[in-house]
Amino acid sequence: MWSFIHKLGSPRWFYAISARLMPWFWVAAALLIAVGSVWGLAFAPADYQQGNSFRIIYVHVPAAFLAQSVFVGMAVAGLVFMVWKIKVADMAAAMMAPLGAAMTFIALFSGAVWGVPTWGTWWMWDARLTSMLILLFLYLGVIALRGAFASRDSGSRAASVLAMVGVINIPIIKYSVDWWYTLHQPASFSVTSRPTMPLEMWAPLLIMVLGFYCFFIAVTLMRTRSEILRRESNKRWVRDLAVEGR
C-alpha cells in the first residue's frame, strides 16, 4: 500500500498507472451519468409539492457534493505538496481547481433556477447560499494566486496555503443549515443518515453522485497527465515517450 502511494508520487509512475486507471473511470462516469440522468429526469416520480422542478436535485446535489469534495481534495494535495514536497500532488491540485470552481458555479446556478419556482426568489443571503458563494470566490482566489507569482514554486505554495486555510469553509457550508435559520432546507442526502426520500427518488440521485465523482477523477487524471508532460518535458523519459510517438 505504502509503496503504491510512494510510486504515485513519482511523475513517471503516476503517468503509467493513471494510463491504466483512466479509461475505467471514463466508462463508469459515462454509464452512471447516462443511467442516472435518464432515470432521474424521465422515470423518477415527481415531488408531491414541487412537481417536476424537484428534478433539478439530480444536477444540483451532485454538483454541490463535488464542489466541496474537490476543495478538500485540493487542500489535502496542498498539504502533501507542502510537507512531503511531492510535485505530482501540486500538479493535481492545480488541475482540480477549475473543475471545482465550475461545479460550485453549477450548484449555485441550478440552485437559483430551482429557487425561483419553489421559494419565490433566486437569491437570498442565507448562511448556506452565502457560504457557497464564498467557496466560489475561494476557488477563484486559489486559481488567481497560483498565477500571480513570477516563480511557479511560490505560486504553488501560496495556492496550497489558501486551499488549506479555505477548507475551514467546508464544515461551515455543511452545517450552515443546522446551525442557523436558513431558507435552504437541511441535507436530504448524507453518508451518515437515511435518505429523506423513497428509494425510487434517491437511487438515481446516488447514481448521479457516483457518476459525477468518476467524472471528476477521470478529468483530474487526464489533466494531471498532460501537466506532468508539460512540466517534465525536459526529462529523459518524457523525451523517450515523444520519440516513440505515444
Partner: peptide, 27 residues
C-alpha cells in the same frame, strides 16, 4: 413586502403523500 416559501428535505411522490395523509399522518 415579500413572502418566500420554505420547503423541507422530505421529498416524496404524490401517491405516497396522499397515502400518508389518508393514514392520518401529515406529510
Amino acid at each position: 413586502d415579500q413572502v418566500l416559501a420554505r420547503h423541507d428535505e422530505n421529498y416524496m411522490p404524490p401517491e405516497v403523500a396522499q397515502a400518508l395523509e389518508e393514514a392520518g399522518y401529515s406529510p
